[in-house]
């Protein structure tokens, strides 16, 4: 951890820090990243077992997504390593900023391709403000899993047709399954 200001609800950490470790450091000040506890919910539905950099690179759905958004919504800035090895900063410690092109968003969901996170600046959440989850768990959620998101109007039928469902969230229409979904993804 490079810097943590609970009063600002902003933390700057090395991208290699384990999320579990970060959660315990933030927790000491009543703050957290709004991700469910993997011990309780299974690694996949919690959205992590790994590092901060991995969390952003994967940008996976999780149980608090409806109220707190996805990891992409928490990243305020970063120091990034480019493929040629040089490093550059993007964003700031302010909770909102429109200053140039948000290069720090390019690593989100990119699975480590292109830009890599060296350090990231994240907004944190008060632990006491965490919402109640609406995940329905039907079996222990293990990694790896298949994750689907669909339109609200398709949710019931997709859920029925998906084999090996281990959890689903009616609020965000996310389905976690142990088997590969048979329904082809729909456009729109």
């Amino acid at each position: 951890m490079i810097d943590f200001s609970p009063a600002d609800q902003v933390v700057e950490v090395g991208a290699g820090m384990a999320i579990a470790e970060l959660q315990s450091l933030l927790g000491a000040e009543g703050q957290c990243l709004p991700l469910p506890d993997p011990a309780e919910w299974g690694a996949a539905a919690a959205g992590y077992p790994g590092t901060v950099g991995g969390l952003l690179a994967c940008n996976l759905p999780h149980g608090y997504m409806a109220a707190c958004g996805m990891p992409r919504d928490w990243v305020l800035g970063a120091i990034l390593r480019r493929p040629d090895g040089t490093e550059a900063k993007s964003g700031s410690r302010a909770v909102k900023s429109v200053a140039g092109y948000d290069a720090h968003k390019l690593g989100v969901g990119a699975w480590g391709r292109g830009l890599r996170y060296v350090r990231v600046i994240l907004r944190t959440y008060p632990t006491k403000g965490l919402p109640t989850m609406s995940i329905v768990q039907s079996a222990p959620v293990q990694s790896p899993v298949f994750i689907q998101r669909c339109l609200r109007s398709d949710f019931d039928s997709v859920l029925r047709q998906t084999p090996g469902v281990v959890a689903h969230d009616p609020q965000t229409q996310v389905i976690w399954s142990q088997e590969r979904p048979t329904t082809p993804p729909k456009a729109g």
């Binding site: 940008n59 992409r72 429109v98 690593g107 969901g109």
Partner: peptide, 19 residues
């Protein structure tokens, strides 16, 4: 697409705010 958080780099977030 119709749902957020699809796989792949978050290019939409780069386009939003590019003035």
């Amino acid at each position: 697409t119709g749902v957020e958080g699809g796989p792949g780099p978050d290019l939409l977030s780069v386009l939003v705010g590019s003035e």
